[in-house]
Amino acid sequence: MGVTLTDSAAKHVANFLQKRGKGIGLRLGVRTSGCSGMAYKLEFVDEVNEDDLIFETSGVKVVVDAKSLPYLEGMELDFAREGLNEGFKFNNPNVKDQCGCGESFNV
């Protein structure tokens, strides 16, 4: 099943990587944080680690470390613009609860 990107998210990541001038794709993971226990972490990837898994959508690679995958399995990453705000939206079927501000979650 893995992790997928919507067309909007894939275009945004591809455009940013092109402007950046380097990079393999987007690294997605989780870390312990926030009032609900976990938070997402996003960063651009320049090299793949030995325990990484790679998922590709619309030509864009999403790199996930093996420890984060159980929390992200089946997730779809979207990118949306709403008025003056824009950002990634995490559509994660594993989330059981999240904090009121939406910054952290638990499974």
Rank of each mutant, 00 (worst) to 15 (best):
T6R: 11
I24W: 05
H12G: 00
G25M: 03
N15H: 08
D51I: 05
K19Q: 14
D7W: 08
K11A: 14
V45I: 11
S36D: 12
F55K: 07
T32H: 12
C35Q: 14
G34A: 09
D51L: 06
T57M: 08
V48Y: 07
K22N: 13
L28Q: 03
D46Y: 06
K11L: 10
A39H: 05
L17E: 07
G23Q: 08
L53T: 07
L26P: 02
T6C: 09
A14C: 03
V48W: 08
E56T: 15
K61I: 04
E47G: 07
K19D: 14
N15M: 07
L28R: 02
K22Y: 13
F16I: 12
F44M: 11
G25Q: 03
Y40L: 11
K19V: 06
Y40H: 11
M38A: 09
M38L: 15
F16L: 12
D46W: 08
G29K: 05
G25L: 02
H12N: 11
A14F: 02
H12Y: 14
L28I: 08
L53F: 08
F55W: 09
A9E: 04
D51W: 01
C35A: 15
G21C: 11
G23K: 07
A14V: 02
S58V: 03
S58I: 01
N49L: 13
G37P: 01
D7L: 11
E56I: 07
D7K: 14
V30G: 06
E56P: 03
A10Y: 00
G25H: 02
F16N: 11
F44E: 05
G29L: 06
K22G: 01
N15R: 12
T6S: 15
Q18A: 15
D52N: 10
S8K: 10
E56L: 09
V45S: 13
V62C: 07
G34Q: 02
G29E: 02
M38K: 15
T57R: 10
E56S: 12
V60E: 06
E47T: 12
K41Q: 13
L53P: 00
I24P: 02
A14P: 04
Q18W: 00
C35V: 14
K22M: 10
R20A: 12
L42W: 10
E50F: 10
K22A: 10
E56A: 10
S36V: 01
V60C: 07
I24F: 14
M38G: 00
C35K: 15
T57I: 06
R27V: 03
S36Q: 13
G29A: 10
L42Q: 12
D52Q: 04
F44N: 05
S8N: 14
S58A: 15
V30K: 04
S33A: 15
H12A: 11
N15C: 00
Q18T: 15
L28Y: 04
A10P: 01
G37V: 05
A39Y: 02
E56N: 09
G34F: 02
T6N: 10
G37A: 07
A9K: 02
N49C: 03
K41T: 14
R27S: 12
T6E: 05
K11S: 13
H12T: 11
S58W: 01
I54F: 04
V45Y: 01
S8M: 03
Q18G: 08
V60M: 09
D46I: 10
V62N: 08
G37H: 03
G23Y: 08
D46C: 08
K11W: 01
A10M: 03
F16S: 10
A9D: 00
T32P: 00
V48N: 07
D51V: 05
S33G: 13
D52M: 03
